[in-house]
Nucleic acid binder design. Sequence first.
DNA 1: CCCTTACCGATAAAAGTTCTCAATAGCATG
DNA 2: CATGCTATTGAGAACTTTTATCGGTAAGGG
Lengths: 141, 141
Amino acid sequence: MQAVLVDQLRKANRRITVQRMQVFEGVKGLDSHPSALEVFEAVKPRLPSISLATVYRNLHILRLEGLLREIHCDRGITRFDSNLSEHYHFHCTSCQRVSDVPSYSREIERSFSEKTGLHISGHHLTFQGLCNDCLKVEPSR
Amino acid sequence: MQAVLVDQLRKANRRITVQRMQVFEGVKGLDSHPSALEVFEAVKPRLPSISLATVYRNLHILRLEGLLREIHCDRGITRFDSNLSEHYHFHCTSCQRVSDVPSYSREIERSFSEKTGLHISGHHLTFQGLCNDCLKVEPSR
DNA sequence: CCCTTACCGATAAAAGTTCTCAATAGCATG
DNA sequence: CATGCTATTGAGAACTTTTATCGGTAAGGG
């Protein structure tokens, strides 16, 4: 299980620890693009002695090794995404949850790079709006 | 000067203070999408007694009243943009500066909304890459 | 099984932001 | 122009999110 993950960590001279695996599983298990604190809460029942610092440390390492992505939607909060395939995000401005949008276009980058001559390594597209749950509660906006 | 700004603040029952005006000018004067601290540093020479809390307070109020936009590119930092016209951003992953990209497409929203049935209020598109200055220094990537 | 060292938990510290509160100053009114 | 109401200010405490420190632990190669 998680052969790619283990191989990539080994290759980078990183050890396979219970905490590291659980942090990764924590992000993967929560489809809601959890914050570090949410990952901590999710892992704690299975690993009651885990430290918040360990969660931060491993989130950072997993991101460095390209096994997780960071996303920045709200002020001051970093969220994590285990979905490495190219995709966009939908951010509900009411409940703050972030969900995946399966579409993606590399063409956007190419046309921008052509127009500006700039060196592009990627792009992020995030839609804002109200998710269906929040639309029911406050149909005002 | 700044008739729209003043009118909008009056309408919202907000007072026109030197500090508030200078905070707005600070964001507008820095084309680099400054953080709160950078706005504070920019305003301080003209208003040596201004408090950092006042800068934060007014950035928040100006955003609430729709006179500034917030953008979230890096981890943990909120940047401000006085350019209210619809546009995208280019984020240099080396020097962390953010610049404006003049293009915009409302069509993206419409097609996404049509496909998903979700209620969309906006979208943010940010390109990552190396700006021309940083490309010269580190042509590695 | 042993040794090296990456990693852990606990905690302090740093960075970014918001809150509290007494004093001040916009500005509407007379 | 003087007065009163209250939104705003400056200073600092407090809070939130994230990173650094450090002695002890355990992963994994030999």
